[in-house]
Design a protein around this nucleic acid. Structure first.
Lengths: 195, 195
DNA sequence: CTAAAAAGTATCGACTCGAAACCTTCTTAG
DNA sequence: CTAAGAAGGTTTCGAGTCGATACTTTTTAG
């Protein structure tokens, strides 16, 4: 034990997390600027690149990013003006609007996405299950604390059903899912009850 | 191993971190709104409440929060207008301005600070050394990745000296430090070379 | 069928943000 | 010692964020 461990309480976990968050935000700003976007626009683009068809509406984007509907609506409109998104009407509910990445949007995400920029620095950190569990536990607590939706990956959801023959289904909507959809984020995601 | 572990890659550590960051930001927004402040103002106030006298200048605040000098200058001015900060001239360098919390600012931080609001949810998580080390390792990597300063706690710095008789000194500036200053964040903080 | 809820849009005002131009004060090279 | 440059800050500009409010359209509940 070092002398300063006695003298000075070291940083609280919250303080470390908060600092990590600040640095990630700075990194986001950098990536956004690289693409000529504002941070909020960049965040929305990245979310839309990773979410499924139940979760690409203004409401869902706003819920994920923690902004209001109005703000979100404006931001999506800006991305559309830049040709990065396209609007898709909902087939069942005429109030609902879906936002999909355009070809240009997909290209931008592929080239400058955060996975390619930041993930490398975390290599070798997450190999063991304990580390990942710690982060997921922190996430779960923050979500529970404020009653936030989990926005987890479709295939890890309690509603996810495998029908056999490589076919999948969402138990909530009853719709069938393509294999590649199973790895996308979903607004309706529910943690399985027990592991 | 669950079936979806085969089918679906689970979230990358970066993605989990990014989500944690987003939720913390949402929480910050909530706390800021509670105090009638904008998020940027709130962040600056919280930083100034926890940093030492070498780190309370517009440059340092901007460096910590990842914003430019101009933006920071404006934000601090707004906080001053609200009576939460006061300006203090530097005794050695007439270019430099220090910002200290006013009585009202201190009271606001005490009553609504993030420690009191968020730390409770993380209780029981960080007791073991491994967990804390993981978070600190992530932080270190992000800092190194972009050449960011560590903004660590004074007493955990390589420059920190204990003179004996409960007196302390900063090896970089040569100035003596009061005991309570040792637990504040410092812009000049350097990790000790070896543990 | 009617009332309420839900999804989304539009607008307002305060503010953020980065960039650029600028001022003052230190520091350093010669 | 002085000139040049670096460093700390401020101001201003324009685009955009953000929350609040009011509003429309569509769906759902009673």
């Amino acid at each position: 034990m070092r002398y300063y461990d006695v003298l000075v309480e070291s940083a609280l976990p919250y303080q470390i997390l908060e600092r990590i968050g600040t640095l990630l935000r700075a990194e986001e700003r950098r990536l956004a600027a690289l693409c000529g976007l504002k941070p909020a626009q960049w965040s929305a683009l990245c979310y839309l690149a990773r979410c499924n068809r139940y979760s690409d509406t203004p409401s869902a984007v706003g819920e994920y990013l923690g902004t209001t509907k109005g703000t979100t609506s404006q931001t999506l409109r800006r991305l559309q003006e830049k040709g990065l998104l396209r609007e898709v009407a909902d087939s069942h509910d005429r109030r609902v609007v879906h936002w999909r990445l355009s070809a240009a949007g997909k290209k931008m995400f592929r080239n400058h996405g955060p996975e390619s920029a930041i993930e490398p620095f975390l290599q070798g950190l997450s190999k063991d299950r304990d580390s990942r569990n710690l982060l997921q536990e922190i996430l779960r607590r923050l979500q529970k604390a404020n009653d936030y939706r989990s926005f987890g990956i479709c295939g890890s959801c309690n509603h996810f059903r495998r029908l056999g023959g490589g076919r999948f289904q969402c138990g909530l909507t009853g719709e069938s899912l393509r294999a590649e959809e199973a790895s996308l984020l979903c607004r309706e995601h529910q943690e399985p009850v027990a592991t």
